[in-house]
Design a protein around this nucleic acid. Structure first.
Length: 417
RNA sequence: GUGGGCGUAGUUCAACGGUUAGAGCGUCGGGUUGUGGCCCCGAAGGCUGUGGGUUCGAAUCCCAUCGCUCACCCCA
């Protein structure tokens, strides 16, 4: 038996780092005033088809979709936003507060061929601000991702921002782009010829040199924004600068999900291979209504946890758990040691002792070392007699005596932390 | 869904078509009494991914299959 393709075990050493990263993200979110929300990984398929868009690749060929026993179509979530919005609408969260700042952390599922930085079950740190279209909210969402990355020592990710316009100005621009693409069809790769018909904006994603060259003179959305969108974009950039986030405007930055309008952004690292995007997001003012809710604007972002882990993989990695290892010698001492072990843990100290009876001191210290303990407490017949235990620092090799009385656990807690 | 690369011990890797498939690291044991790491000695651990084929003989060559991996598409 082995795990399903594209599904990975997160082993203890790795899981420790994950907890650390998640804790860092929570810190950032709470400092921004976000509240956590946890939604199911499984939703009715319609949540995603209506939210993300029927004709996106995610919905058309990447979702884990299957009929429930009653025949209803269900899907594992391929991204977080649609489910969060569904939860907001269903629970009428917008009714008790006109502004919602929510974050969630958890697994997402897409049926793609796995490669570096891409799995079928992957994890995202996700944030949404719902109820305002003010430019500062865009900048804050971006900043939250920025703070999570920089707080973890990721310094080589660059921030790229663009505006995709709105339902007023994008169609006008799209016509212009179509006209341009029509003129250069012959210079485009086969993929882009297909794209230019289906979703013209996506030709800007193409990595082929011939297309990049051909598109050099193409009109870009940024230059064709309506007055409202242009003003919004300008303010987002101004706030981003005020937050001290160095960014570059990438007029070719487009996103794959239908719901994005206006602000869109990515944080990209060169160290991730073909999947360089470690965080991304944007504004989705029409999404709430598309899912049957009131007309609420929103902006959100997602950080790819696996990709983030790849960027910080070489950090820390200190083995062991620190903590204290209790070594007992003799049956009487072992009884005493067990109850002391219990008291030590109640003081908040991480403490363990060998399960097997009758081990020699040497063997017990060896085990302590292998467990990565920082301290060893020696409880032997001699120590019981003199009522003085030996506390050994396994790192510095220093030993000291600790009186065996009612206060022993607390004393050790002081000395061994 | 489409391509390329790779499958040998727990792990990282060796082994010209030719005896019993090896090494480092890790694991376990030992180096005598109550002091770990370092060092020394020893042990366990393999259907060479799987199934066919070529050959006197296959880890090695060929085919298929499965798996991993990287890339395309697309995306976090």
């Amino acid at each position: 038996m082995n795990a399903v393709r594209g599904f990975k075990d997160i082993l203890p050493k790795e899981a420790k780092r994950w907890s650390h990263v998640e804790a860092r993200a929570r810190e950032v979110f709470y400092s921004f005033g976000f509240d956590e929300i946890r939604t199911p990984v499984l939703e009715k398929t319609g949540v995603f088809t209506r939210g993300i868009g029927e004709h996106t690749d995610i919905v058309e060929k990447e979702m884990y979709t299957f009929p429930d026993r009653n025949g209803e179509s269900l899907s594992l979530r391929p991204e977080a936003t649609a489910g969060v919005i569904r939860a907001v609408i269903e629970n009428k969260l917008h009714a008790s507060s006109s502004l919602l700042k929510l974050f969630t952390i958890g697994p997402m599922f897409r049926h793609e061929r796995p490669q570096k930085g891409r799995l079928r079950q992957f994890h995202q740190i996700d944030a949404e601000i719902i109820g305002t279209s003010a430019p500062l909210s865009d900048a804050e969402v971006i900043l939250s991702a920025w703070e999570i990355l920089s707080g973890l020592g990721v310094v080589d990710a660059r921030l790229e921002i663009n505006s995709l316009g709105c339902p007023l100005c994008r169609p006008v621009y799209r016509e212009k782009l179509n006209a341009f693409l029509h003129g250069i069809q012959a210079h485009l790769c086969p993929d882009c010829q297909r794209r230019s018909a289906a979703n013209p904006l996506r030709v800007f994603d193409c990595k082929q040199d011939c297309c990049k060259e051909a598109l050099r003179q193409a009109p870009v959305m940024k230059d064709h924004l309506c007055a409202d969108c242009a003003g919004h974009f300008e303010r987002v950039l101004a706030y981003s600068s005020a937050f001290n986030m160095p960014f570059t405007i990438n007029p070719y930055l487009v996103r794959g999900l239908d719901y994005y309008v206006r602000t869109t952004f990515e944080m990209v690292s060169a160290r991730l291979g073909a999947q360089g995007t470690v965080a991304a997001g944007g504004r989705y003012d029409g999404l709430v209504t598309a899912l049957g809710g009131p007309d609420l604007p929103g902006v959100g972002m997602a950080v790819g946890l696996e990709r983030l882990m790849l960027l910080i993989a070489d950090k820390d990695g200190g083995k062991g758990n620190g903590g204290l290892f209790v070594a007992a010698l003799g049956e009487e001492a072992r009884k005493r040691a067990v109850s002391l072990l219990h008291s030590l843990r109640k003081t908040g100290l991480a403490a363990q002792m060998p399960y097997e009876e009758g081990k020699g001191l040497k063997a017990q210290l060896k085990e302590a070392d292998r467990q990565g303990a920082s301290f060893a407490l020696i409880v032997g017949e001699n120590e019981l007699e003199t009522k003085k235990l030996i506390l050994r620092n396994l790192v510095s090799h220093e030993q000291q005596e600790v009186a065996l009385d009612d206060n022993t656990a607390v004393t050790i807690r002081e000395l061994a932390s």
